[in-house]
Amino acid sequence: MVMKLSKKDILGIPDLSRDEINLILDTAESFLEISTRDIKKVPTLRGKTIINFFVEASTRTRTSFEIAGKRLSADTINISASTSSMVKGETLGDTAKTLEAMNPDIIVIRHNAAGAPHMLARLVRQSVINAGDGAHEHPTQALLDLLTIKNEKGHIDGLHVTIVGDITHSRVARSNILALTRMGARVTVCGPAMMMPRDIDKMGVSVSHHIEEAIENADIVMMLRIQLERQNESIFPSDREYARYFCLDREKIKAARPDVLVMHPGPMNRGVEIAPDIADGIQSLILKQVTNGVAVRMALLYLLAGGE
């Protein structure tokens, strides 16, 4: 059992061993309680500076990181795309060196370009956390999903998780596939054929194009946000057509076991990929995911800052 995270950065799930993931989850577990206190603050990271560098818009992830840092008493600074000098044409490299020169301890980055956090991590001596890079990875989301599943089911190993949606454009799907399979879960991905990236089966998942079939034996169903408007060209006929065949609603969930649990990384498109009564129903873990997200990010900030 590792007691310390001997890493500079958290860029993606492949960098984390099973033991390291367990360490992060256990640490997060111990931080969960802090958020339930009246005084939600511990002095652990007092004197540390954390920059939340969000080139791509985000509400929940940025807020989650900011709250995580503040509850550990770190000084957190937010930079967003519109306020950064990148709108003035500064390169990521120059921004990176500028931020580095101000001596923060941890830089959290979200960027619409896959690999941008990796580039930043090569350029700065500080720790870098990937808060989502293009359609590549969103490791902290996968870790909070693992924590949520573990807390509900008691274990991850041996579970069957079905991920439904636009797998091609989903960093949440990629990180979850990597994390879940590493922890011994079986993963099925489901969605329209044009939303399946080529050779996805080589990631060790089963592929289905029919939601009823895909969720039949699932312990967990993860629904992904569908953004038909974001794609340059229409690769799918309409929201209506999508909802008819892939929206998790009361009818389709009948195909699953009665104890199936439902997750969604947010933000949701109610009525497109998930019906309101399912999102708000007793099987939904959606708000628990958000709560656990703060604890997981506290754990990562703590461990990267050298805690054990």
Binding site: A114, H136, P197, R198, D199, I200
Partner: peptide
């Protein structure tokens, strides 16, 4: 387009 692009999300 292949397994590498799928892994990278590019």
């Amino acid at each position: 387009e292949g397994f590498s692009s799928t892994q990278l999300g590019i």
